[in-house]
Design a binder for these strands. Structure first.
Lengths: 197, 197
DNA sequence: GTCTATAAACTGATAGAC
DNA sequence: GTCTATCAGTTTATAGAC
């Protein structure tokens, strides 16, 4: 079932790695084909245009992310734990070489992206915002999380902080910075239990 | 004193407008020269290489920003008011056409930027962080601001939220989103006066 | 499905006339 | 300081052999 990866998958893997680092415009077909030891035309065989490649890439990325989030909702009762796992998953995509979340990187190029890619990006952020809103609602109901205003507002703010934390971690050339920033953002939402104080 | 702008300044103005929108890599000399009604070679006369242009642009941007921040520190006693003015200045650089803060846009391309540009960017964010830290310290001393942990930590978190708010505003194609997000971030730090509750 | 070969457009950059 | 002209390299993309 999980045999050798197809060329198509290897292309997507390498394209993602490069675009997490450099963005959409600064990754060329040649970069991908060279890294994979194949030819330019072979990449075009699987993804005729760069628009196709970009859209397929973000589609795969956001689908996998959504699957993970759904799993968390189904298996982790505590909203606080779910948020912690949410942050942990982000930490796995951030690396010393400058890689951050694919969609965070690409949204910065929104103005120059082809429409299909932009649409996939919008779907990613909409999905993230919805999942966070529900999680914040759960946490408030459970008495685990406290925040001023609506759950939707708090979710938007949390997402903005996470996105900004990735950019600041890159500016500081320190993945640890992302860890610190998001950990504090979570702590600020946490309702301290009597014994933990 | 403020007569007709020089060609050099017109180039910087147009380059900034375009790069706030599209980033560094997606702006070509041709884009600038065409918009100004001049020739490609004329732009190269003022900025021999694109590295020169990028570095000069960010240098001007961050110098003007620093001047504004220093002015705020000198003339506005209230730390809360200073933060409000800080956010207001960001709102003037955000537009419906997708423009955001030049340095927020460029930091996303950090991996592919020439070293001189990267260095100017680092200076911008270091300066912002230092100013915010001092402002948070003042606010805490004055009893205007309250936050958990150190002023430096709170300043970092605030900056991350502001940066992320710009990306999220762009994703939502709504400058208003930036306004809402940052307003709430500021409210969360505000110590409510007895009569305002 | 991968290859060679090549097109067509764009990019940053330079030489030299005016 | 601006222009014309041009170069060399890169980019996305296609045609057609194997």
């Amino acid at each position: 079932m999980t045999g050798h990866p197809t060329t198509r998958d290897r292309i997507l893997d390498e394209a993602q790695r490069l675009m997490q680092q450099r963005g959409y415009s600064s990754v060329a077909y040649r970069d991908i084909s060279t890294a994979l030891g194949i030819r330019n035309a072979s990449v075009h065989h699987h993804f005729p245009s760069k628009t196709d490649l970009g859209a397929a890439l973000v589609l795969r990325y956001r689908t996998e992310a959504q699957t993970l989030l759904d799993q968390l909702t189904a298996t982790v009762p505590s909203a606080l734990d779910r948020l912690h796992r949410y942050l942990t998953s982000y930490r796995t995509v951030i690396h010393d070489d400058g890689r951050i979340c694919l969609c965070t990187q690409l949204i910065a190029e929104d103005c120059v992206l082809p429409a299909p890619v932009t649409q996939e990006l919008a779907a990613f952020f909409t999905g993230s915002e919805q999942w966070l809103t529900r999680t914040f609602e759960d946490g408030q109901r459970q008495g685990e999380l406290q925040f001023p205003g609506s759950a939707a507002d708090a979710a938007q703010t949390f997402l903005a902080t996470v996105e900004g934390a990735m950019l600041m971690a890159r500016a500081a050339r320190s993945p640890q910075r992302f860890h610190d920033l998001t950990e504090r953002a979570l702590t600020a939402l946490h309702v301290p239990t009597p014994r933990s104080a």
